[in-house]
Amino acid sequence: MNGYATTLTSWNAGRTRVTMPPRATFTRLNRGATLGRPGDAAQQRRVLKATLDLLALDAPQKPVYLDETAD
């Protein structure tokens, strides 16, 4: 994706980290619900906002671990 500022979020830090994404947030959410619990718009927005905030920073950035869980 050369030439574009990119960011992502993943519940699977172990698998994603080794691909060396330029910007990433990692959570402890569930597979199939990457942004948050269903119906929990506030959590989905928090994960989304934290992930988008990384776009302001030059890449590569160290991944940011978010305290977001499925519980």
Binding site: N2, T6, T19, M20, P22, L52, L55, A56, L57, A59
Partner: peptide, 22 residues
Amino acid sequence: PLPRNSTAPSGPGVDLSQSRLL
């Protein structure tokens, strides 16, 4: 075999409030 890289892409950040996001 999980794909593994040693180098992350580099590039400048952007002001998202002035950017078009895909």
